[in-house]
Design a protein around this nucleic acid. Structure first.
Lengths: 189, 189
DNA sequence: GTGATTGCCTAATAGGCTTAGGTTAGCATG
DNA sequence: CATGCTAACCTAAGCCTATTAGGCAATCAC
């Protein structure tokens, strides 16, 4: 019997493609194994069960998202940077809905150093953008939560088909960012 | 053999309690049946399988959430109304995390008249609040998406333990609403 | 070539959903 | 009060998961 020649990365690759195509809930070891031409128990050589696989997919999503945000922010400042980061965030969520969803399972991901580091990097990107607004310290941390909540909610609602009305979702997103931009600029204290 | 005397409502009740306590993912027919003192197949007399049960729990969540928003908005206007609605939204999400999560599965819920009606009612509440800001028409629909995205994202991040830093989550929420309030007030055109 | 590693396998356990088909409790009707 | 119907509940079985245990053999280091 020839070997498939798998390794950890190949398994996570296959899982990531699967969740992006069919949703996080449809991630099963059986399906991943089938796409790799292998039986389910064989995956245990590379991955420590289903939960571990989900965690690794989430960690990859967190890392890719943080990288995308960093690239978007590079060389920009102020509203320009906020818009670029927001666009990159939404773009990643739309392009990789499964990885994105997996990246948000904070409780599971707290066991992954890679995921924790990536989340920290993403926060740093937003904090840098906020310095362009003159917001620092705790104010900046609160503002980071505001921005993250707004972007996260938008991406999830879009992914789940929550924007049912016949009204441009692109326009809605642009206005969301504009509202945040205005709201952040007007901060006193 | 005595009968348990179940009906649809009792089954959905049990499921709603279960998902609020242990999370939406832990909803299984076997567990619901066990809490009701019955075998899993017996539930098929009252509910059309697991997916249908999830849909019904989500519909109940959507209705309860819409009712809470309506109560919060009653007798208030402007920033006051926005704050009250936002607090009610977050409060429901925290108090009933499982129902709340189920209520957001838009694709599944599109098959539920109750859920569709409830979602429409919630949108109406927000539109009424926005009239207090002088926002109407498409602008108001876009603003509704902004508000919904921000609240939804915040509730989900809070539920999943996404706010890890030692920084008051209550304060963050207050500032989120304040940022939205300022951002909505400054709308031109 | 030889030995060790390890990738992959089959077999089996345990638990989930669901369908099929049977039994019976409890009500409605005569 | 007896009869019969409805529907609530059951067991059995099939098929899908995940996971563990234990075995075989392909491949690599020497």
């Amino acid at each position: 019997m020839p070997r498939a020649g798998l390794d950890d990365t190949a398994v996570v690759d296959a899982a990531a493609r699967l969740v992006d195509a069919d949703g996080l809930d449809s991630l099963t070891l059986a399906r991943v194994a089938a796409t790799l031409g292998v039986r389910a128990p064989s995956l245990y050589s590379h991955v420590d069960g289903l939960e571990d696989l989900r965690r690794r997919v989430g960690a990859r999503g967190a890392r890719e998202l943080a990288e995308a945000l960093g690239r978007a922010a590079a060389g920009r400042a102020g509203s320009d940077a906020l818009m670029a980061v927001a666009e990159a965030y939404r773009s990643y969520g739309r392009g990789h809905p499964g990885r994105y969803a997996a990246a948000q399972r904070a409780r599971e991901l707290s066991a992954s150093n890679e995921a924790v580091a990536a989340t920290g990097a993403a926060v740093e990107v937003v904090l840098a953008v906020l310095r362009g607004y003159g917001i620092e310290g705790d104010d900046a941390l609160h503002a980071t939560r505001t921005i993250r909540a707004a972007l996260h909610g938008f991406v999830l609602l879009e992914a789940v088909g929550g924007f049912a009305l016949d009204l441009s979702v692109d326009d809605s997103f642009t206005r969301l960012i504009a509202t945040l931009d205005r709201g952040l600029r007007a901060v006193e204290q």
